[in-house]
Design a protein around this nucleic acid. Sequence first.
DNA 1: CTGTTAGCGCATTCAA
DNA 2: TTGAATGCGCTAACAG
Lengths: 344, 344
Amino acid sequence: MTKKHSSHLTMSDVAKKANVSKSTVSQYLNGRYEFMSKKTRDMIQRVIEETGYSPNVVARSLKVKKTSTIGVIVANILHKFSTEIIRAIEDACMEADVHVIVCNADDDPEKERKYIKALMAKQVDGFIVFPTGDNIDMYELLEERNIPLVFLDRIIPDLAVNTVLLDNFKAVDTAVQVFAQAGHTRIAIVTMPATAYVTPRLERIEGFRISMERYGLEMQENHIIDQPLDRIQQEVTGMMSGPAPPTAVLAGNDLVLLEILNECKNSGRHIPEDFSLISIDDVSYANVYQPSLTTIKQPSAEIGEKGAEVLLQKIRGEINDQQIVRMAPTLIARESVKELIEEN
Amino acid sequence: MTKKHSSHLTMSDVAKKANVSKSTVSQYLNGRYEFMSKKTRDMIQRVIEETGYSPNVVARSLKVKKTSTIGVIVANILHKFSTEIIRAIEDACMEADVHVIVCNADDDPEKERKYIKALMAKQVDGFIVFPTGDNIDMYELLEERNIPLVFLDRIIPDLAVNTVLLDNFKAVDTAVQVFAQAGHTRIAIVTMPATAYVTPRLERIEGFRISMERYGLEMQENHIIDQPLDRIQQEVTGMMSGPAPPTAVLAGNDLVLLEILNECKNSGRHIPEDFSLISIDDVSYANVYQPSLTTIKQPSAEIGEKGAEVLLQKIRGEINDQQIVRMAPTLIARESVKELIEEN
DNA sequence: CTGTTAGCGCATTCAA
DNA sequence: TTGAATGCGCTAACAG
């Protein structure tokens, strides 16, 4: 009757049981043992162990104005890229004893907006977001209120926000180089629509132009396909049956890759006999596919880790810059690129 | 100079600006307009809009003893199964305006334990966990403190906790039935080690025995492989080169499937000529693989949705049972199962 | 219809 | 070395 329900155990209860005052318990909890007798210290510890007391983080947060929680808003949680990054963020944050609230914007600016608002109300200490780009005012609001913010994967122009992303130029360049060295001259790139703010698509296409020129290859405009997923198969079919079709194709991401492979299956095309293929994103089945697929692996874990690191530093007030960090990809050479016999 | 920094805007500030008292603003925010003049109501609304005020959820949580946040602890966030479930949980929770903190236990009981403690301190309203099984005391503690808890994917025996998982028996039975109807009699199953608490593996093997008997097929003990991932390839090779090798193989999950496909590639075996194959888990490349792969798709989204629904109901005190819900899988028939010519 | 009051559980001066 | 007092921002009676 006298014993409170254990879930409502509070600091006062512990203090009472240990015959000390609340503040002493508080000091104990925060490791300020300096001015505390060994005796009271042990006493408090014993009571805490016996009761299984643990301090109420909500109350603490209210007091110290810090929740030790960050919000992560991913564009689409179903992408392996996202989950790998989330995992890395989690790991980094666990080290720092901060929690992560993951929100899935589902590529929907409205959802993103809603989540940013909700997380602000929840007083998160900072944000990591894969920005849709359609909520500039929200991003600005965060900056204005001095809430630390880091963007991942996408750059929002004209906004001075720390950003970590793949070095898309390098990724494309690596692929083009591999193709060029294997003797290919007619190279195509297939991506999803390069709409504003979707940096990876934008940069991969831009990088493609640059790299083609660098390796002295002539680019054909119709060898750049940027279409919605459900149109990619027919576009590829069209390109392949046109004049001077490409002998090498660069798939812009894992989803595009799947469409290309589907097209092959449906049209009876074979890799690498009919065309060589490299994909950005190292898919799980890259090894077992026949032929195994040469890929450009994104450093997802590193991107997540770096992003978390930058955010945590900003939260601690250790940095104050607005760098854009580009992480290098890795080429995983397998069997989907064929050496072309020189025709001279 | 008189204007406070916007991020510190509080209810009192709003009240002051609107010439009303705090409690009136509070009422407004909680939608209790009944006893409020249209005038004050409009006034408050205007001030809120102008200032961009949003209430501090932390303070509110402290007061109402409810955080509108649940904790989700997944065994391993890298599994597609997990991310699909997380996404479904998210969606369901967003509807109910509750937030989700996702933690990745990484199949490590220690991490699981740490997360449960941390989330309890954070006063989450409930838990959804893919239990490792090694923290029974923690699960019991949650029950004891009346913190709503739902298990996903794995059953912890002797613990009366609501659980939602795949109907593993049905999944296996579907596969065996397909094989049997195609004329196969020598069928094998390959899974990861069936250690305690890992319900899917346990039930899939048990179900395999049951189904084989149901379809009048004789089971060979050496046609059950339950080994760590890195041993699966050699075990399969061994089984296939032994006497009376299976003509059909059931892969216990996506990871096992990858190992089996790798084995095929390395040993030059072909599907479905050398053996037929069905996998539990519908992988992204099922269609593009040659031949396309027949799979048993887990209802991940439904499992997540149902789990969230049950938890939210428990939180609201609407239910008080301890059901185990098994969700039915779906057969996706493709080309990796070969009809065997009758040999009579 | 609106304002006053009294905490929620904790951290933090400031005295003792 | 410890304790009493104060307030974080909000809700919820209860008065008015």
